[in-house]
């Protein structure tokens, strides 16, 4: 059962999560435990990695225009930094007393804090990346909203020329995101909606073309062709809105686990 919702986050956190769980179990089973080895060096390596993450994190916050990311990332960075101080304390305490129970507790708390803080940080970053994809999806929706003003062939050519690159970009980004997800149901939902969008795009262009032709000929059937065009636009918008909804899902469908 996947715990992390993207393969990238899973590849980063899964190994450390396993080690921390193992340590917690060993700690509980061993009660007082053996003498701890000198952990000063590995703790120092963690501290250096934390210092780097804090620097890179605040650099990202400073240059980002995403207000939610600016709000979400600092608490996660603080969490990681505070956890690293717990590890430093634990290391100092264990050097003085390799059997110290409070030091072992601090070691576990610190490791858990690093895991949770890094997880929160990666989640904040990931959500920010998702918001970028959603912005692209919304730009397609905005573009689809102007379909109704296309009433001559010249407009249609321009419409197709402008819509194609945005749609291609959206399809590429959603496709990449789908491949990143660990949750099978969400992946399938994205694949289905994306395929529907791809299938409906030529149908839309054809529907607009028929509407424009019918209108320019002054013949009957304008209302019907307009209705058909609007129906296809609505279908496309529904699928894109569904993509936006699924992109924001991070919880797991309980039914799948049953």
């Amino acid at each position: 059962m996947p715990v992390f919702h993207t393969k990238t986050i899973e590849s980063i956190l899964e190994p450390v999560a396993q080690q921390v769980s193992r340590l917690v179990i060993l700690h509980e089973e061993a009660e007082d435990g053996n003498a701890m080895p000198d952990l000063a060096r590995p703790v120092q390596v963690v501290k250096m990695a934390v210092d780097n993450l804090v620097k890179v994190g605040y650099d990202t916050v400073n240059v980002s225009e995403d207000q939610i990311l600016k709000q979400d990332m600092p608490p996660a960075l603080q969490r990681v930094e505070e956890a690293s101080f717990l590890l430093l304390d634990a290391s100092d305490m264990l050097r003085a007393d390799p059997y110290s129970a409070p030091a072992r507790k601090k070691l576990i708390e610190g490791s858990r804090g690093i895991l949770q803080g890094t997880s929160a940080l990666l989640l904040a970053f990931d959500e920010s990346e998702v918001r970028k994809i959603i912005r692209i999806c919304k730009s397609v929706l905005e573009y689809l909203a102007i379909t109704e003003v296309v009433d001559c062939m010249e407009d249609l050519v321009k419409f197709v020329k402008n819509l194609s690159p945005v749609l291609t970009k959206m399809a590429k980004e959603v496709d990449l995101r789908e491949k990143e997800l660990t949750h099978q149901v969400h992946r399938e939902m994205l694949v289905r909606s994306l395929e529907e969008v791809k299938a409906l795009t030529p149908v839309l262009i054809s529907a607009v073309k028929i509407f424009v032709s019918t209108k320019s000929q002054g013949a009957g059937g304008v209302k019907e062709s307009q209705g058909n065009r609007d129906f296809v636009v609505r279908k496309l918008c529904d699928e894109i809105n569904e993509i936006i909804r699924v992109l924001q899902l991070t919880t797991y469908d309980e039914d799948e686990w049953e």
Partner: peptide, 29 residues
């Protein structure tokens, strides 16, 4: 990308630390 790399480094360093601590405990279990 830099964020991901930095997080990867922390995770690897923490896993190594916890493994070192866990090995000492395991000997007793």
């Amino acid at each position: 990308e830099q964020i991901l790399e930095a997080a990867r480094s922390i995770a690897a360093a923490t896993a190594a630390l916890v493994k070192a601590a866990g090995t000492a405990q395991k000997e007793l279990v």
